[in-house]
């Protein structure tokens, strides 16, 4: 088991190298002049060929591909991810500053994904083909066929535009004032809901929560719908297994049959998908955060992409790939916790 984890961790740099290489390739398709556009603040500079060339040299934009790539990798190893034009600060700083907001959003979204996805999936399978099952299934089908940007806009339109329940952003102005200016307020985790509770500021906690609900709904819908689908089919499959009949033949009560004998087995394939969905939500934040004006990584990377701020985009991709690989490792380890057959290998 330990050697397996070590082997997987050794693979991590190789996978990341592949990922960065692909992204770097994409950016190399742009000419140095096009890439330069990111660094030009004053359009007048473009009229002077000499200053253009000076800028190209300054940012190493016409280095041959391998050299450009190697230089970039070298800098990354020293945590120098470059300068984010969009955030107007170093990329590493931009990431660390925005990461807590995104993490908070994703962490809260795990709750509906896992609870609703798995719980409804099991209920749906147990009530196979009756009204309840059909209703749940239709909800799920809508969830994974409706694109996030449409569903998100709908939520925004209904809950902010009409009902005015869930405003966009991360905090109301009064709460922001406390967060940034109050000397008494201490940030322990940078997750606002938790910090607010730790500071005993309940109104602030509720305000942060109010801002989170709409993005959580949007971000998690597609994921829990997918998880529900997998749980349902896995559960249906398991309920037909011989050992379920054995359990019933022993006179075990139906609750134990479903929740111990069937669900535990049915969850084995679900764990993989759940892991992927949760990590995938980090990618999903790009659209969700943009819609709800939520100041996290996704919001920042979306504007970076529009402005061809490639050092920001490539760093986000690198971060995302690292989390993806680590997440998969965690998924594989959690297999062993559920399925004894994996433990000894």
């Amino acid at each position: 088991m330990l050697s397996y984890i070590i082997r997987r961790l050794l693979l991590l740099p190789i996978i990341l190298l592949g990922v960065t290489f692909l992204i770097f390739c994409l950016f190399s398709l742009l000419s140095p002049m096009e890439r330069l556009a990111t660094y030009v603040h004053d359009p007048a500079t473009l009229k002077n060929p000499q200053s253009v060339q000076r800028l190209i040299d300054k940012y190493h934009l016409d280095d041959p591909f391998p050299l450009g790539y190697i230089n970039w990798i070298k800098r990354i190893i020293h945590f120098d991810l470059g300068w984010s034009q969009t955030a107007n600060q170093p990329v590493w700083e931009a990431i660390t500053q925005r990461f807590p907001a995104t993490l908070e959003l994703v962490l809260y979204s795990i709750i509906p994904v896992v609870l609703v996805g798995i719980w409804l999936g099991v209920i749906s399978a147990v009530h196979h083909n009756d009204m309840l099952d059909q209703t749940i299934r239709v909800t799920a089908i809508v969830g994974w066929s409706l694109p996030t940007f449409i569903f998100g806009l709908l939520i925004l339109f209904i809950f902010y535009g009409i009902l005015e329940w869930f405003p966009p952003g991360r905090l109301s102005t009064w709460a922001q004032n406390i967060l940034y200016t109050s000397p008494d307020f201490r940030s322990y985790t940078h997750l606002i809901t938790i910090d607010a509770l730790l500071n005993g500021n309940i109104p602030m906690f509720l305000d942060a929560l109010r801002h989170l609900i709409a993005p959580i709904l949007t971000l998690s819908y597609i994921s829990w719908a997918e998880l529900l689908r997998i749980t349902r089919s896995s559960m249906l499959d398991t309920l037909r297994k011989d050992y379920i009949r054995t359990a019933r033949a022993k006179g075990v009560d139906e609750h134990t049959v479903i929740h111990l004998h069937a669900r535990k087995n049915a969850l084995i394939p679900v764990v993989t998908v759940a892991g992927m969905q949760i990590i995938g939500m980090l990618g999903g934040v790009v659209i969700t955060e943009t819609i709800f004006n939520y100041p996290g990584l996704g919001f920042w990377v979306a504007s970076s992409a529009q402005q061809l701020d490639y050092s920001s985009v490539i760093s986000f991709a690198l971060l995302f790939a690292t989390l993806m690989v680590l997440g998969n490792l965690i998924v594989d380890i959690s297999y062993a916790l559920i399925d004894p057959r994996v433990r000894l290998e």
Partner: peptide, 30 residues
């Protein structure tokens, strides 16, 4: 009645036992 009055032995011992529960638990359950 099942298990106590009428018990059953199945055809496929490979699939009739729950793969993720110990045999001890599966016997104890009834």
């Amino acid at each position: 009645i099942r298990g106590k009055e009428i018990a059953m032995i199945f055809q496929e011992p490979m699939t009739a036992l729950n793969p993720i529960l110990t045999v001890g638990f599966q016997i104890s359950e009834a």
